[in-house]
């Protein structure tokens, strides 16, 4: 249940994907586009993905997460293309019988996604643009 999409992400759709009668809770992380970074005004973010590999790396994260915590289902939707302030960059939904596993698993998915999944974001300012995290 992975998608890399240039369409607006539908939060309810992601939640529905992980619903289960065995679930006691669903944890959802929503990453949104923030208007400021390092004292500069951000106009928009531009996301780019190496799509095939992004999907396979996300699948690895989901598999590892399911080994580490007793969760039921995991859905991840990540945006590509230009996203304006307040728009959704990523939505992660995790269902589990108990909330501890859902919270921990959801955090692990977003933290690991940021480290390994081949998706890049460019911050667009009034006076220029920069690829995030590219330089030391």
């Amino acid at each position: 249940m992975i998608e890399v999409t240039n369409q607006p992400i539908d939060i309810m759709e992601q939640i529905k994907k992980v619903e289960s009668p065995d679930a006691g809770g669903i944890d959802v992380f929503i990453g949104t586009v923030r208007n400021r970074t390092r004292q500069k005004n951000v106009v928009a973010l531009e996301f780019e993905a190496y799509e095939k590999m992004a999907v396979s790396e996300l699948q690895k994260i989901i598999d590892t997460t399911k080994e580490k915590w007793p969760v039921l289902k995991i859905a991840v939707s990540h945006a590509v293309g230009r996203k304006n302030i307040g728009e959704l960059a990523v939505v992660i939904a995790v269902s589990a019988a108990h909330r501890d596993a859902a919270f921990q698993a959801c955090r692990y998915v977003i933290d690991t996604l940021k480290q390994t999944v081949p998706i890049w974001k460019k911050e667009i300012f009034d006076d220029g643009e920069v690829w995030v995290s590219a330089h030391p």
Partner: peptide, 10 residues
């Protein structure tokens, strides 16, 4: 083959 510069998704 692909070059993967530092990733910054999320």
């Amino acid at each position: 083959i692909a070059l993967i510069p530092p990733v910054s998704g999320g």
